[in-house]
């Protein structure tokens, strides 16, 4: 992950840099998974995919030359192979999911049974959002505050006058 991050900064070619950045993001996602933060890992993965799409769209100015003729056999085999691998892993992952209508209640049962006594809030949504997952709310507030500051920094009067 660190190697990929250093590569993303140092490399000259823009699109290789974007690919190295996505590798770093994937490493970060796996690190979150190992640290038992699946919520954060999913968010990281989704944001990473979005960022990579935007960045690739931004870095490709002209269409890349696509070589299509002469390699159709290899292309077909590679496509079928990756499709098979994807389906296999999806099957393995789907088998691990709990059945429909029978959710895992290990953590939520704890919240439901002890939420009122621990937080004093009859509204369990608020209890979870601000007490059990209080740092999530703190980070959300930080994100909103950063967005406010960023908007003001872009749209203020002084910066526009300096530009002219």
């Amino acid at each position: 992950m660190i190697f990929a991050a250093i590569m993303a900064v140092e490399i000259k070619d823009l699109i290789s840099s974007v690919i190295a950045l996505s590798a770093a993001g994937l490493g970060l996602c796996l690190a979150f998974l190992i640290l038992k933060a699946p919520n954060l890992a999913i968010t990281q993965l989704v944001v990473e995919i979005l960022c990579v799409i935007v960045l690739i769209r931004g870095t490709i100015n002209k269409d890349l030359p696509l070589v299509k003729d002469g390699r159709w056999l290899f292309n077909t085999i590679a496509t079928l192979f990756s499709l098979a691998v994807l389906l296999l892993f999806s099957y393995l992952a789907l088998k691990e999911l709990p059945n429909f209508g029978a959710p895992l209640m290990r953590v939520s049962q704890e919240y439901i049974s002890t939420g009122l006594e621990k937080t004093g809030s009859p509204n369990l949504v608020t209890a979870v959002a601000l007490n059990f997952r209080g740092y999530d709310a703190l980070a959300e507030a930080a994100i909103i505050f950063t967005a406010i500051i960023g908007t003001l920094a872009i749209a203020r009067k002084i910066g526009k006058k300096d530009e002219e």
């Binding site: 009122l116 937080t119 004093g120 809030s121 009859p122 608020t126 209890a127 601000l130 007490n131 209080g134 709310a137």
Partner: peptide, 14 residues
């Protein structure tokens, strides 16, 4: 419970 001042710090952070 179920009163305005029942949750303490939760209300303050709200």
């Amino acid at each position: 419970h179920f009163q305005l001042l029942s949750a303490g710090f939760l209300s303050l952070s709200e």
